[in-house]
Design a protein around this nucleic acid. Structure first.
Length: 826
RNA sequence: GCCGGAGUGGCGGAAUAGGCAGACGCGCUGGACUCAAAAUCCAGUCCGAUUCACUUCGGGUGUGGGUUCGAUUCCCUCCUCCGGCACCA
């Protein structure tokens, strides 16, 4: 009696078994090779979406596969549980952020379990619990001690909608990355982490990341933005001060006919102190600062500047040059001051033209065809002219010599500048890690002593949505005693950017209940680095660069022993429907719950892995899902129909051995094992691995009747079915467990070894040789593998069709490739 | 503007080292089963010719060129789409 495929019953059954038997719980085991498989932990927004299903299904295939291959697999999950939406929910629906978050986690955990992902649940990490975020505070204090965490007054990106400060990375095209409202500028005391101290290593470390997608490395490179050049001092006799500029083109310095300072430059007030139109200037400066940096970027405004009336001395020419203030110079890059070389820089050219400043060419193109069109600066390298003793040198030679000359005279030096800026971590928010700092009127800024950690988020607070952090209105939180003098003091009310949490959570998984340190260094040394990290490319810059920074810092603290946390990063593609990313506003969201209900977790997993390779975009289609459901059903029926083979005692007596059929299936089986293994292990092409399983299933269906008519055939059929079940296990684990049990498997599939193929049996013994004439396919023939080229040639020439086409002519040339083809040229 | 990635049937995609383009799946067409439908099973399905037919021929991987006996694959040109950066001195 054939049993119908009841996925609901089967999936529930095996999820329970895995949980009860703690199949995926792991401990360090030096005897086994380890494998740390990690997917980006989710923000508990309420429900799992298809992007999560894809991310976690990919990871689960790898984790289950590695386990079957004998690895000690760590496959953890947790929750990126602090953050803005919880607070918004509190404002909107009056639910406490903690309750909202914990409820969401409970539901999403159940969803992940329903998908059958093989997580080690005892290591679950939750960043909104004090036992986790106290270590954010601990790390922060360590950084504070070493000057890597610091506080300064700075212009910050301010989102009026979210009423908070945003990191540069959270501003996208001048808008808030979350709510899309326009970002303005505000000056505030802010905490920063000195990621720039690691700028060079973050860049050079890329060399070790050979298993990262090229475009992600490129994005990080752009973000770090290293540029090598020189710092040069221009003296300003009128105020007896120096203005230092950064330039990557010191070879053009003889053409520097003016200086331009950012309006925010510290010397600005002094320079305009005696300006006749001081008031007008101050107004303009105010306006320019108010106009956000961000907005300037969008509009690419016309360059606008004011002459301060003062002169600086070009240290190379000795000539005085005017000093301007202008809107196109950024204070937070380089020194906030640049030398204007209008002949060789397009921006300076436009500025000089507008304000009628002299344009002196000092670089000549090394070939006439490089001459730029009229109205444009010549920005390429070339040969120096009008440059005194440096005339005739190439730009490259000149840069070294001129920097050395400047240095010798104490006028400058070689220098490297980065676009990367320190990481502003202050947030005026409630649902975040409190920054563990106390302000005392007498003692100033005091760190919270380690033994007082954690500084907990106070339970009671009001969520009115008014400006400022809710923490500012919790007296019990704010008012405290100074740890140094014991006098009355005030707590910092800013909380940390949630990217701090995710910068080290992968360490915490190694020892999630550690109470003395953020994590146990010995355990971390066993598990780390993460062998495979899988997640969306939207985190290519932020999360992945912060995590690399934290890893290097934790290494320097002596806690970690690795330089890079994720040597292998698999950037998973987006899930789309109707040509666009799934989103509520577009109304094209497909709910995983409904799909699991209708087709089962196994079918959903198989489909989401089958329809495109992991790194590419994935287009949702319910027909496709149905197709995968049918595939699963076909396997189920195939196994059901042949269950008798697994019963003890062979009752079938027919004996008609079909050798051809036997050979075909045997070869197909071993080739499939090879292909599925290689596709998962080496290429992560899970889609082609599944298609190979489909092919094997089709072959089994085709050959099964012929095979069942002999003892030997039945043995092979049995073996093939058993292997098919094992190969299927990483993709459709519930189905595999159920069928494995039905066919008499004593162990759990999850604890069974991966099938091994016999290379001899996987080999083709006959191979098709293609015959081409002038590159066109004209005929083909079958021959034994590894046949000598001479024989191939003879055979090809003897083919009637080829002889006919040659018409008695001798080929001019014959190319023979073993096991491939014979190519004739006439 | 600069940097990176990608363009293959009606659709998602395959071709792993330069060697039979279109595996596998969806969709579609025809057939079987059925009173009928659904489900299932079988066959076909790149385009255009050609043959009663087994067939045979031509074209074909965004465009145009190049290297090669041979190019989806390597090189150059251009087009389109996607992503990142963007007054960075």
């Amino acid at each position: 009696m054939k049993e119908a495929y009841n996925f609901q019953k089967i999936e529930e059954k095996w999820q329970k078994v895995w949980e009860e038997r703690q199949v995926f719980e792991v401990e360090e085991d030096p005897a086994k090779p380890k494998f740390y498989c990690l997917e980006m932990y989710p923000y508990p927004s309420g429900r799992i979406h298809m992007g999560h299903v894809r991310n976690y299904s990919i990871g689960d295939v790898i984790a289950r596969f590695k386990k079957m291959r004998g690895f000690n697999v760590l496959h953890p999950i947790g929750w990126d549980a602090l953050g803005l939406p919880a607070e918004n929910a509190a404002i909107k629906h009056g639910i406490h952020p903690q309750k909202w978050t914990l409820d969401n986690i409970d539901y999403m955990r159940s969803q992940l379990k329903r998908l059958g992902i093989s997580y080690c649940w005892s290591r679950e990490v939750n960043s909104c619990l004090p036992e986790y975020y106290r270590w954010n505070q601990w790390i922060f204090l360590k950084m504070l001690e070493q000057g890597l965490a610091y506080r300064r007054l700075s212009w910050v990106n301010w989102c009026p909608q979210c009423r908070t400060v945003l990191a540069n990375e959270q501003v996208v095209a001048g808008r808030c990355w979350r709510c899309d409202s326009e970002v303005s500028q505000k000056k505030m005391e802010q905490w920063f982490l000195k990621i720039t101290a690691y700028a060079d290593e973050l860049l050079s470390g890329h060399e070790k990341l050979t298993n990262w997608p090229e475009h992600v490395l490129q994005m990080q490179k752009n973000w770090i933005g290293k540029s090598e050049g020189a710092l040069v001092n221009f003296k300003v006799p009128a105020v007896n001060k120096d203005i230092e500029v950064f330039t990557t083109r010191i070879d053009t310095i003889y053409g520097a006919t003016f200086l331009v300072l950012s309006v925010e430059h510290p010397l600005t007030p002094e320079l305009i102190a005696d300006h006749p139109e001081k008031e007008k200037l101050l107004d303009w400066i105010k306006k320019t600062i108010a106009e956000t940096r961000v907005r300037r970027e969008i509009k690419e405004e016309e360059k606008e500047g004011y002459d301060t009336g003062l002169k600086a001395i070009n240290p190379f020419t000795g000539q005085p040059v005017p000093i301007f203030l202008a809107n196109y110079v950024l204070m937070d890059y380089g020194t906030g001051a640049v030398m204007g070389v209008p002949a060789h820089d397009q921006r300076d050219y436009e500025f000089a033209t507008k304000y009628k400043l002299p344009i002196i060419p000092v670089i000549k193109p090394d070939s006439p065809d490089k001459q730029p069109p009229a109205g444009q600066a010549f920005e390429d390298y070339g040969i120096l002219i009008n440059s005194g003793e440096f005339n005739g040198l190439s730009s490259q030679e000149a840069m070294g010599k001129m920097a050395a000359a400047a240095e010798a005279k104490g006028l400058g030096r070689k220098s490297v500048t980065y676009r990367l800026r320190d990481w502003g971590v202050s947030r005026q928010r409630y649902w975040g890690t409190p920054i563990p700092v106390i302000y005392c009127e007498t003692c100033g800024v005091q760190p919270v002593p380690y033994e007082q950690l954690p500084v907990e988020i106070p339970c009671k607070a009001e969520f009115s949505g008014e400006e400022g952090s809710p923490l500012e209105r919790v007296p019990g939180f704010i008012n405290t005693a100074c740890p140094k003098c014991g006098g009355p003091a005030r707590r910092e009310t800013d909380t940390m950017d949630t990217f701090v949490d995710s910068s080290w959570y992968f360490f915490r998984y190694c020892s999630p209940h550690e109470t003395r340190l953020p994590f146990d260094p010995e355990k971390a040394a066993y598990w780390l680095p993460v062998d495979l990290y899988i997640g969306g490319v939207e985190h290519a810059i932020l999360h992945l660069i912060y995590s690399r920074f934290f890893t290097k810092y934790l290494r320097d603290l002596g806690l970690a022993r690795i330089d890079e946390p994720f040597p292998h990063y698999l950037a998973q593609g987006m899930v789309t429907k109707d040509g666009a990313a799934m989103s509520k506003s577009r109304g094209n969201v497909v709910d995983p719950d409904e799909m699991v209900k209708a087709y089962g977790a196994d079918a959903l997993r198989v489909f989401i892995l089958f329809a495109s390779p992991p790194e590419k975009e994935f287009a949702w289609s319910e027909e496709g899902l149905e197709g995968c459901y049918r595939f699963i059903l076909r396997i189920w029926n195939l196994v059901e129909e042949n269950l008798d083979l697994f019963q003890c005692g062979d009752t079938l007596s027919a004996e008609q051995f079909d050798s051809a059929s036997y050979q075909r299936l045997s070869k197909k089986l071993h080739q499939t094992i090879k292909k599925v293994t290689d596709d998962i292990e080496q290429r992560f092409h899970l889609n082609t691995a599944i298609s190979a399983l489909m092919e094997l299933t089709n072959s089994l269906k085709k050959e099964k009747d012929a095979l069942r008519s002999s003892q030997k055939g039945r043995e092979l059929l049995k073996e093939a079915l058993a292997d098919l079940i094992l190969l299927l296990a990483p993709f459709a684990p519930h189905l595999a467990e159920e069928m494995w049990q039905k066919t008499g498997g004593a162990t759990l599939v999850a604890e069974t070894s991966w099938p091994v193929y016999d290379p001899e049996l996987a080999k083709e013994e006959m191979i098709t040789i293609v015959v081409q004439i002038n590159g066109k396919l004209r005929d083909k023939f079958e021959i034994e593998i590894d046949t000598d080229e001479e024989i191939l040639k003879a055979k090809a020439l003897s083919l009637p069709r080829i002889q006919e086409l040659l018409g008695g002519k001798e080929p001019k040339k014959i190319v023979c490739v073993k096991n491939k083809l014979v190519s004739l040229v006439v």
